[in-house]
């Protein structure tokens, strides 16, 4: 017995070494055999927290790239929306054809300059003709409209903001299909617009949503415009004057999509012909 203890004492380092190594081997085998079985992985509280804190910092460093990537992704997704496709199935077809053609494509761009506090406001985008932007294209963000492209240089373009005396867009209630024109009359208030031409008998309430109609050849249908803030009927008037809160926050518009209507020319030409026939 005494010899055993002596042996253990003389070889204590070796034994500790063997013990620790066998724990390691056990950990390895156990870890390979069972998923999620031990707490010794980076999902545990300490290491996960350290990683998330560090990620917060590194994420910040990569914010720019990530934003650009997300914008590009949004463009892709946006193009896939059914709104932006036109149904090519003719009414007379017996079998319902579900083929869809792309009608709108979106070009992402960054706002490099903008104003909101003038009567006529403009934005400047960092993309131009080389990116496929042409005058009279619509400019939107994910949940609202921004304006219409005015001038284009090879690498930049200017946009007439919706905060402009000439801007006008056809808007309808999301729920009821009644439509009117949305204009920006509200002097120097970049958060509200005015909806006109809604007849007296239309029923709506504060907070209702407005979206673009299909009449415009600039904006796709069903783009969110804003919500109703308040309404009144001026004496002797048959139409409401409705104050609308923009869904677009013009003060911090940063990334926008320029909308290219692939069938604009076709539509224009056809309408022109009809007009000429009169």
């Amino acid at each position: 017995m005494r010899n055993l203890f002596l042996f253990l004492w003389r070889n204590n380092f070796l034994l500790l070494f063997l013990l620790l190594e066998s724990i390691c081997v056990y950990l390895m085998v156990y870890n390979n055999k069972y998923h999620n079985a031990s707490f010794l992985n980076s999902t545990n509280k300490i290491s996960a927290n350290i990683f998330s804190v560090v990620n917060m910092i590194t994420e910040y460093l990569h914010l720019k790239e990530n934003n650009e990537w997300l914008v590009a992704e949004n463009v892709k997704l946006r193009m896939a929306l059914p709104n932006n496709k036109i149904d090519t199935a003719t009414q007379s077809a017996l079998i319902k054809d579900t083929l869809l053609n792309q009608q709108y494509i979106f070009i992402n761009a960054k706002v490099i300059n903008s104003t909101v506090n003038k009567r006529n406001n403009y934005l400047t985008l960092n993309k131009g003709a080389t990116a496929g932007i042409q005058p009279e294209m619509g400019v939107v963000i994910a949940n609202g409209i921004v304006g219409i492209v005015k001038d284009v240089s090879p690498n930049f373009s200017t946009v007439i903001s919706f905060l402009h005396i000439k801007s006008k867009v056809s808007a309808r209630f999301k729920d009821s299909n009644y439509f009117g024109s949305l204009v920006w009359e509200d002097d120097n208030n970049p958060t509200t617009a005015t909806l006109k031409d809604i007849p007296k008998h239309v029923v709506f309430k504060t907070g209702d949503s407005l979206v673009t109609t299909s009449f415009s050849n600039v904006y796709p249908e069903n783009i969110f415009l804003g919500t109703i803030k308040k309404s009144e009927i001026k004496p002797g008037d048959n139409f409401y004057t409705i104050s609308v809160r923009f869904s677009t926050n013009f003060k911090n518009v940063a990334h926008v999509f320029v909308v290219k209507n692939l069938m604009k020319e076709e539509q224009k030409k056809l309408e022109q012909e009809t007009q000429n026939d009169k």
Partner: peptide, 9 residues
């Protein structure tokens, strides 16, 4: 190992 998910190695 805990940080690198290489249990025991």
């Amino acid at each position: 190992d805990t940080f690198m998910n290489t249990a025991g190695m």
